[in-house]
Structure formats: structure tokens, C-alpha cells
């Protein structure tokens, strides 16, 4: 008999970089100890577990606002391309770079659907 836990539909991935082949199956959400507030288009993030705080510029804030556990990375990419004057390739490169940075800092968690 196995002691394994029952399978869940979603699985949280640790602090690995984003898998670019799974962008349409990867959702993002803030880590438990992170509080964020957006003011004047910019966002301040406070990591209560480390005492560090971070600021996001306008584009970073738009991305952060979609990291609620509902939108996939592909969804967020589509929002950026629809709203901003940017080449899709550049938007994706910048999005993945920012998300990887936020994951590395422990501010974001990624979850596979």
C-alpha cells in the first residue's frame, strides 16, 4: 500500500525558473508572506519573512496585478501585447525575466495546472 498523498489538480513548483514550454499551464501567485500595495501606478511589495521591500515600476505593477493565481503566464503576455506598444517577443522575454527575478527573491510562487 502506498503512503503517497492524493493527487491534486495543481502542483506548486519551488523556486525553479519558469519553464518556457509550459507558459499556458503556469499560473503565478504572491508568496504567503508578501504584501503588495499599488499607488500611482507603482507597487510596493513587503516580504514579511525577510523584512525586505521592493518596488515595481508601472509595467511591473501591471504584471503583478495579474499574479493572483488565476492568469497563466500566456494570459499575462496577451494582456501586455494588447495594452502596450511592444513586440510580442520582447514582451515575453521581459515578462519571463521579471517573473524569474520575483521567484528568485521569494516573492512569487508558480503553480502548474
Amino acid at each position: 500500500m502506498s503512503d503517497s498523498l492524493p493527487a491534486t489538480p495543481h502542483s506548486i513548483i519551488s523556486d525553479h525558473p519558469v519553464d518556457r514550454t509550459m507558459l499556458d499551464r503556469t499560473v503565478l501567485q504572491p508568496s504567503l508572506d508578501v504584501q503588495g500595495t499599488t499607488m500611482g501606478g507603482e507597487t510596493v511589495l513587503l516580504d514579511l519573512s525577510t523584512g525586505r521591500y521592493y518596488t515595481l515600476n508601472q509595467l511591473g505593477s501591471v504584471i503583478w496585478e495579474h499574479c493572483t493565481g488565476h492568469s497563466t503566464i500566456s494570459d499575462i503576455h496577451a494582456v501586455l501585447c494588447d495594452r502596450f506598444d511592444v513586440a510580442p517577443e520582447r514582451a515575453l522575454d521581459d515578462l519571463v525575466a521579471l517573473v524569474n527575478h520575483l521567484i528568485q527573491e521569494g516573492l512569487l510562487q508558480q503553480e502548474r495546472r
Binding site: Y53, T55, L59, F84, D85, R90, A91, L98
Partner: peptide, 17 residues
């Protein structure tokens, strides 16, 4: 009519003390 898009700037996060 073509939709007017906002200016794009690279998304940035800055870590503070």
C-alpha cells in the same frame, strides 16, 4: 479604428534595504 496603445517600458523590480 486602430486602438491606441500605451508606451511600453521594461518592467523593473528594485530591492531595497
Amino acid at each position: 479604428m486602430e486602438q491606441k496603445k500605451e508606451q511600453y517600458v521594461q518592467p523593473v523590480v528594485v530591492k531595497h534595504e
